[in-house]
Amino acid sequence: MWKWLHPYADPQRAYQLSSKLLPWFSLLAISLIGIGTVWGLLFAPTDYQQGDSYRIIFIHVPAASMSMAAYMAMASAAFVGIVWQIKSADWMAAAIAPIGAVITFIALFTGAAWGKPMWGTWWVWDARLTSELVLLFLYLGVIALYASFEDKVLAARAAGILAIVGVINIPIIKYSVEWWSSLHQGSTIKITEKSAMPDSMLYPLLINILGFGLMIGALSLVRFKAEILARNSMRPWVRELAQAKGVK
């Protein structure tokens, strides 16, 4: 049933597929983030409680939700790499890790810049903030572990195990607002019920979430391509490419 997927485990095919997908991802990501941000900053109505400071939501929520989604993507790729011994999946996991770390940092920073005017403090040791910080440390741990092995096949295996063990943190972040009494407000977007937000605020937010997701996809593809090239430097097709592009 999944037979059609197998050829894409081959590095060259994966490289070509990523090159084909990349322009679509980047174009869509740039236009969606552009539309969402301009809409959010200029056209969305001012919140009657939080004033204009709430406009940070249009980058904070996308970054926060995508930091978790990127972690899940990385852990799933690592799982595929370990269980089915598909090296391309390992490289994908290695490609996502630094991007996820930057997105997590953005989520934390924008949260702090929003917390200062609303709660009167940059940081509180609250369940959700702490677990998001732990997520950043998990990303950094995966990156550090991947970097500290000379043999990158082993490095990917080891970092993959750590990534899979760290998945336990994701539900803790997701439900921390419901489990503990928290200063952090509950989620504004609900899939099953009506969102606690008027449409004029919700649409730019959703557009930006989608845009951030696609941007992470595009960046992962670029890093994935570089990772493929670096790990296959002895293959003839990579050498041809290097001769064509690298020598100037």
Binding site: T130, L138, A144, G166
Partner: peptide
């Protein structure tokens, strides 16, 4: 490296 890997899981 060990402390970076383990401490987040201990929290």
């Amino acid at each position: 490296l060990l402390s970076l890997l383990i401490l987040p899981l201990y929290i």
